[in-house]
Nucleic acid binder design. Sequence first.
DNA 1: ACATCACATTGATGTTTGTCGATACGATAC
DNA 2: GTATCGTATCGACAAACATCAATGTGATGT
Lengths: 115, 115
Amino acid sequence: MFLAMATTDTNARFCCQPLMENVLTEDAAAELATLLKALADPVRLRIMSIIAAAPNSEICTCDLPDLLDRSQPTVSHHLSQLTKAGLVEREQRGKWAWFRIAPERLEAVANALHA
Amino acid sequence: MFLAMATTDTNARFCCQPLMENVLTEDAAAELATLLKALADPVRLRIMSIIAAAPNSEICTCDLPDLLDRSQPTVSHHLSQLTKAGLVEREQRGKWAWFRIAPERLEAVANALHA
DNA sequence: ACATCACATTGATGTTTGTCGATACGATAC
DNA sequence: GTATCGTATCGACAAACATCAATGTGATGT
């Protein structure tokens, strides 16, 4: 939905007539870029993938440093990025933190990419 | 297709039983991350959007600096990134460079995001 | 209370990225 | 050829990012 998210905010002149209606606003572009950026890292993609493949579609943080071959602070940082972007949701259970994918949010990104 | 792109490359131990089958390989994750990174910038998203909305779904580079409010070198750099990622295709016509979206490539990214 | 465990935060470091001025390249027009 | 125009490349710089060791925090169990 490069189209669907669209509202115009530019009134520029052109020499080859591109129309500026139905084009991503600077704001809309920034918002979508933020989401894509949150996904655009191999470690974070693998986290999403691991969650999607896990029983009950949820994981405990404790497994990730081993699975991802990254330090605990690094994993924590990536989970925080994904959470902040709204792509995963965090739930505390005793001392463990569990994460699930926020499907609507992920779907929104995927849909935004269909022209 | 966090699932569809999957083949395993990790045999880690776990305390909360996540399965490591059907999980993105490090290589697959890196590849997908590269594509997402190419899209994860407001200027590049607007470029894609402008192309998608343009007549004949193509644009001449010459219009972009004005439309995007960025210098010519900056625009050139972003177009180069998108081209390198295979998300757009370049065609020289006289002195002008024209760009079109590579739909399969963009679709592949979108599909990879459906769980 | 105390020790322990799971996780977050801080601080530091090397790398990558977006940006632009200056310049080089390549095609067109004269 | 020479001038001009559209675009790419180079060099520099500041901002953002991934990473980890060290430390802080908050809950559990004894």
